[in-house]
Design a protein around this nucleic acid. Sequence first.
DNA 1: AATTAGGAATCTC
DNA 2: GAGATTCCTAATT
Length: 336
Amino acid sequence: MATPVSSQTESVLHRSRAGFTESSLTMLKQEEGLVDVLQMEDGGKPRLDGSERGLSGLYLSCFDMLFTEDAAWLVKVAGASAMPSQRVEPVCPEPEQCPVIDSPGLGTEAVSPGLEEQVEERSLEQVQTLVVGEVLKDIETACKLLNITPDPTEWNCSNVQKWLLWTEHLYRLPHVGKAFQDLDGKDLCAMNEEDFRLRSPQCGDTLYAHLDIWKSAAWMKERCSVGDNRITEGEELWSEADSSCSGQPIHLWQFLRELLLKPHSYGRCIRWLNKEKGIFKIEDSAHVARLWGLRKNRPAMNYDKLSRSIRQYYKKGIIRKPDVSQRLVYQFVHPV
DNA sequence: AATTAGGAATCTC
DNA sequence: GAGATTCCTAATT
């Protein structure tokens, strides 16, 4: 695995304009390549459609969108004629060689100065804003699913373990939770990259980089909210009819709705067949069960039990089987 | 083999 | 007590 980040000791002091440290952004950029590799792992078929993506996945989705919807624009932005218009195959064997979005001087010699430069500058800002927005959204989604706060410094030991499990799960890292036992969020945030490596030689650097992204996001959020009551995009999402801030334990049907709300992240494991009628299909029953188990702190959760809970909704008139019954297809009785 | 259905006991808030 | 979990048997796909 590529070492995503190096020498981040001063990163907190050098937040970029968008609020993310240079190292976090570097990692995000490099993940673009990494994700392609990860998604090739089963049977060599690229999986670009949804779940288990997390930050990198959303980041990639963002690029999918740009490439498919406005390929010409992005090619111009990047100033790279070699840029593919579709991301079907991994574009670069080494992450270091991947096209990056805000490299100073990237492609600048190919573009004439003046107006075009300004346009490019603005486009880069737009891309950066887009990426940052997606990262924030993804962190918030993870928070909802794990029932933890976005700010790592507020985590208790159990929250830290949840985050580790989640990150390991998303990025298919080996399980290293034990190496971080009895650490709360403050302890974790106080650790540097070397500390992470000491505790986990295999993926300490990766975990450190991911935590750095979370720290940066929390830092940004705090900065945005100070003296500014305007609702940010993140907070808007946060205030959706969501379970995690109501204090009430989340219901399974709410959880399923939340997953369905994020096709970007979970479309591969659960998706609408007919949103208007509230008909949805569980595409990966084991994965949805795992997510539910994570959310409820029930490691032994499986689809057998989850589906039993869904069936309890039949009598209550919350969920039913659609008129034409299909395997793994259910219908909300009262679609929104 | 996986999914569906529902009874029943138990757990958790 | 509500809602979810766990375990179960039996039927269906």
